[in-house]
Design a binder for these strands. Sequence first.
RNA 1: GCCCGCUUGAUGGAAUGGUAGACAUAACGGACUUAAAAUCCGUAGCUGCGUGAGCGGCGUGCCGGUUCGAGUCCGGCAGCGGGCACCA
Length: 859
Amino acid sequence: MDERYNVRETEAKWQAAWESKGTFRVDDRDSRPKYYVLEMFPYPSGRIHMGHVRNYTLGDVVARARRAQGYSVLHPMGWDAFGLPAENAAIQNNTHPAKWTRENIAAMRTQLKSMGLSYDWSREVTTCEPDYYRHEQKMFLDFLKNGLVYRKESWVNWDPEENTVLANEQVIDGRGWRSGALVERRLLSQWFLKITDYAEDLLKGLETLDRWPDRVRLMQENWIGRSEGLRLTFALEDRPDGLEIYTTRPDTLYGASFVAIAANHPLSLELAKTNPALAEFVAECNRMGTSEASIETAEKLGFSTGISAKHPLVDGHTLPVYIANFVLMDYGSGALFGCPAHDQRDLDFARKYNLPVLPVVAPKGTAAADVVIGDVAFTEDGVMINSGELDGLSVADAKKTVIGWMESRKLGEATVNYRLRDWGVSRQRYWGCPIPVIHCPSCGVVPVPADQLPVTLPEDVTFDKPGNPLSHHPTWKHVSCPTCGGKAERETDTFDTFFESSWYFARYASPHSDKGIDRDLANRWMAVDQYIGGIEHAVLHLLYSRFFTRALKKCGYLDVEEPFAGLLTQGMVCHETYKNELGQWLFPEQVEKKPDGSLIETATGRPAVLGRSEKMSKSKKNVVDPAFIIDGYGADTARLFMLSDSPPERDLDWTEAGIDGAYRYVHRLWRLVVQFQAELAPIGTSAETSDETALDLRRAVHKTVQQVTEDLDRFHFNKAVARIRELSNKIEGHAGTSGGTSDGVRGAVLREALEALVRLIGPMMPHLGEELWSLLGHATLLADAPWPKADPALLTEDSVTVAVQLNGKLKGTVILPKDCGQEASTSAALQMPIIQQALDGKEPRKVIVVMNRIVNVVA
RNA sequence: GCCCGCUUGAUGGAAUGGUAGACAUAACGGACUUAAAAUCCGUAGCUGCGUGAGCGGCGUGCCGGUUCGAGUCCGGCAGCGGGCACCA
């Protein structure tokens, strides 16, 4: 009994056992129902972080529980291996991205294996290997054939010093994050996938995703941003061409006081050629960056073009045309009419440039003359005013009417517009999948013939020059045109890395197939039954994958439309932070606690403060390395902690105390089984009993099985842990008793209790589970043992504690036979002295009985 | 700016509109120990009255509403966090 549970040895032992037996290999021909559990695959940054530990623990619990419940479980893992960090590392450390990435993968694979995750490693995929990306090159060419790909110019953040395109997050205060150079907006010719063709379908499909979180569906709905409105062409004075605008508020046309166009609108660019001041304004708008946030929060600025637009409803009335920084070229037609009274941005703009503000919608019940617009636009429903024939109509009717007028006069038409834009997939980067096309001076853009795939990334590249290494590789891009045989050049852009992650889930179904996606196997395994990952992917990755799956279906790769039937989005892992007087972040080891409890920065002796708990990040110096935790406490402890306190969708606070508590519990469970080992009846002995103490334990066991099963189904892992702790506390309580000895079933009841307990903890703490399973005398693996079943006969209670309320306030409780009926409940409550006293001989006005729960006496 | 989420003891959290605080963590008291660690047992929302067993009041960010009954539903407000198309 002096022994202790040896975490390190035990965990290694069972990991080796699972591996040597191929426990988690899944057979494509298995006839049991399939269940596909998938966690978002990681970018191989080199080390796993706590976010991974949380994500993969959640997935593993689901996978192991489903396995025990009799499903054929597909639970794979792989690497999202293309991406910018590899190139940054190459520049910083002079290592090749391929080498860096492959070493990182090897290191992370070892770390993941040390967590004891139930992956079928034979299905591992690595997206940066030609064996993977060759298939997506083929897909791209198929998309091209099917009209899902096109090329157009689009705006990017350009770093003139590095000769490279920057992500929005790499633009800090208008400057490149690394070079510090002023970032420009530039037009580049790029490849786009027609996700907008599927806008309506992607929107409709959301309704079928009933196992997705509502908020994710809502985010996607908003992202797609369907709106109904009017496309309308304004005639311009002194110009032959018209100006097409889009509006969702055709009803407010009489209140229009200006027309605004985007800085990149063709008309703006044309005017800029002959007007230096205007050109400067356009350039300034272009420096704002491309992010919606920066555009929308910037001060509303405009530049008058001097052009006037003719009001389509009021003869002789004209509206000035401005170039405005808040008009997005990518939305609608890049032009709008402003009705300041009923749109806040338009109002801000109008006030700044002294434009008229004419209200055309009055709040219900307000007279037209009383409507005054101050600094706040009126954007709600109301009654039309100041609008000629529209006066008195509702907003909705006015919209219809105006659209009808414009359609009959051939000036415009009703349009459904989406905020969703096509997916730009070109990246001017090296470490990505080459886009398989060739640019020929005489034939134009020529797809690489399928038999010449893959276009592999050359590995002999250098990062000493700014820009994309593929462009200055001496030979790679020079090829002969597949059509005419003349000199031509390869496309040097590579795919957005969302490309790889948009189909990897289908690749796992047939990871070694030459076809990339084997249609039959994809149909067998898809859709993913349960997908688990960070909420940060709520829109882009998940929307792109939904689109991609539809595109693959169109091209005959598979037959599903929705890739992820169930989705669980987990919260972040947070940890406390420290700051010094200057507000700089400190590592915990840079801080000392003085006897009076105050904190000082060790190096300087100056005060430090304990900041709030923040998402773990290098910059905040609050990262805890999971490898250190797994080494010191073991994988089961780390896994238990991840599941214990917070529900998965919420942020989780990492605390040292919490991990200690989890560690203690792991050992406590081990001692619990060791302690009772000698008393146990042989495997398979019936635990039938009439001994009250024993029966009480049996009821608790079966109730816990029931509750934990439900909790896991609903992903209430923290509650499942709490139930398990309650049960183990209860079993522990039997140590000093003679419960069950009266009819000789003690050993059988204890065995039943411990076996149930061990099987319930199996998915959460698999190593400890296996160890205890073998201590209980089993020669088989717990991983192969079925899930425990609750006996319904032991779930029912004979009596219940019912709360008695007076006017909704709790006054006491009464124990009643279960389901004893309205009358019995009422009379029991009315007999209580405190109720009698309160009623003072009077009849209660009303008695509300919620059977087995509550009796509320209303006096 | 727009969109989304969150707010319950010292802390993480539990609670089909029905006994708020399960289960843990930290704390305190005790047992064991030469001692410490580990382990075990116990206490505990706040507050008033009472020597005491106990009796009462208040309490889920704030204000209001619906209801016999609200942490939960509705309206408003505040605070905090996240996302916004080239980070993945």
